[in-house]
């Protein structure tokens, strides 16, 4: 395991802890999208089907259990905890997640490495993770005012994606058979960055890009954060409360 992968896992873990902290201690989930959290629970349950059959390392197994446990407990808190569910912004969190799940499922059935149940589900989880943040980004745009913890949650998630990309680039050079699409993807990224699209155009483009490969989806997900990062860093630099422009 390389340093980028470890740092990526740690920022991913921090993002989950930040969210749990907010929900558990402040008993509030204001600004948090239940749709995104449900999608993550689905992502982890379809990806970690091998948790009891293929052993990689103790680290892997423990982390998988943490991500499964935390995602389901966040969903449970937001749905069933009396105090927490009261702060849930139901009226703004209206993204239809079936529009993300179905295309990802069809795509996984069409484009995969091996046509086995576990492999197709793994591929589905990779595609779905790339777009699972969309309901959260839409909710952030609609509510405008974002509290610190929600902002930090999305920031750490974005950091995790960026570090995973560095990890893939590293593995590409150190493990010859690792990634095939990476040069194509990074070229796409440069072109897209040059055009400076906003979140919703990113979505259309990401659907197109997803058809190219599983590796691509990791990049797309990071691109979705680019817009958010811009405002996050600006608000931090100017020391003002984080708001998003429409």
């Amino acid at each position: 395991m390389n340093v980028f992968r470890l740092a990526g896992d740690m920022t991913h873990l921090i993002s989950v802890l930040v969210l749990l902290l907010k929900i558990h201690t402040i008993k509030s989930c204001a600004g948090v999208s239940l749709k995104t959290q449900e999608l993550y629970a689905l992502v982890f349950s379809t990806r970690y089907l091998d948790i009891f059959t293929d052993f990689t390392s103790l680290y892997n197994t423990v982390m998988k259990l943490i991500f499964l446990g935390s995602s389901f407990s966040i969903v449970w808190y937001m749905r069933h905890h009396k105090l927490v569910q009261r702060s849930y912004d139901k009226d703004h969190d209206t993204f239809r997640h079936q529009f993300l799940v179905l295309p990802c499922l069809i795509l996984a059935l069409l484009i995969h490495e091996q046509f086995t149940f576990k492999e197709v589900m793994w591929t589905f989880s990779i595609y779905l993770e790339a777009v699972a943040i969309l309901p959260q980004l839409v909710l952030l745009q609609r509510t405008r005012n974002i509290d610190n913890l929600t902002g930090q949650y999305v920031f750490f998630l974005g950091a995790y994606r960026s570090l995973y990309i560095l990890n893939w680039i590293y593995r590409y050079f150190t493990e010859p058979h690792y990634v095939h699409w990476i040069s194509t993807t990074s070229m796409f990224c440069v072109v897209l960055f040059c055009f400076g699209f906003t979140i919703f155009k990113w979505y259309l483009i990401s659907v197109l890009l997803l058809t190219l490969s599983a590796w691509m989806s990791g990049f797309v997900q990071t691109l979705l954060y680019a817009d958010f990062f811009y405002y996050y860093i600006n608000s931090w630099k100017n020391n003002v409360k984080l708001t998003l422009q429409a």
Partner: peptide, 10 residues
Amino acid sequence: SSKQPGHDEL
């Protein structure tokens, strides 16, 4: 299936 690239990641 765990031999596929990327399956050792989270």
